[in-house]
Amino acid sequence: MTLHIDISEETFGSTLAKAFRNTAFVAGFVITLMILAMAVVSYAWTPYDVTKLVISDKTQAPSLAHWFGTDHFGRDILSMVMVGARNSIAVALVAVGIGMGVGVPLGAFAAARGGLVDEALMRLNDLVFAFPALLSAIMITAIFGPGAVNAIIAIGIFNIPVFARVARAGALAIWPREFILAARAAGKSSAQITIEHVLPNIATLLLVQGTIQFALGILAEAGLSYLGLGAQPPMPSWGRMLFDAQTRMVVAPWMAIFPGMAIVVAVLGLNLLGDGIADILDPKSRRQR
């Protein structure tokens, strides 16, 4: 795989100025910040206590008291969406961390060494890629039982080859550059060159991929908890809320609408943020999904 990387040659200040003229970036940034804020606030305050069941208030339509309505146990949906954000963000973020932490060094190493090491690592990548995240999640759940941690592991494992590929493709595009040759002529080792020259130049690429995987992680987590393979009750999660809503669609459609909207908005925000960053820093960068 070859990849063209245009290395941006602008200063931080002008980049920042450009960022705030980029609609996608601003919109994505604001939305992401909002979702994060919602999750953080939920630790200190939610409109209602999500652990308390108030059967007398069950399946109430949205109103001034309950903006998003209540569920079949009378819990406030807005509060549950807020608390659910924590779970989604935590799972997706840690999974991105696993993917980056393992994948980027692997990809950079493969690109630096080349030859058989590269070939072997890439074949290993193919192997992991053959197990879609949901499938590995199913396998992991089959062994260890359902839970948020297992969801993280499953999504994280799937992220590893994604980041390894992006890092490798990016690094391969950097290695033939003359400034790398110059560094080699100056006697720097592959490891030093990777840290000093290669990684800083593919950071943008990784950042963009990071936002994409973050978004995909939220989607995957929602899917897993919808199937009951993710976070377990009573911890509210967006996917689980949708599962509970399914059989009550006719009487309480709001139970399905609002958690779903939360997912859409969160994912949309992250994707916009990623697009924005890519536009600003690397107009020609090719994103991979």
Binding site: G223, V265, V267, N271
Partner: peptide, 8 residues
């Protein structure tokens, strides 16, 4: 469309 979970 990219942001919509298919099951929702």
């Amino acid at each position: 469309g990219v942001a919509v979970p298919n099951f929702w």
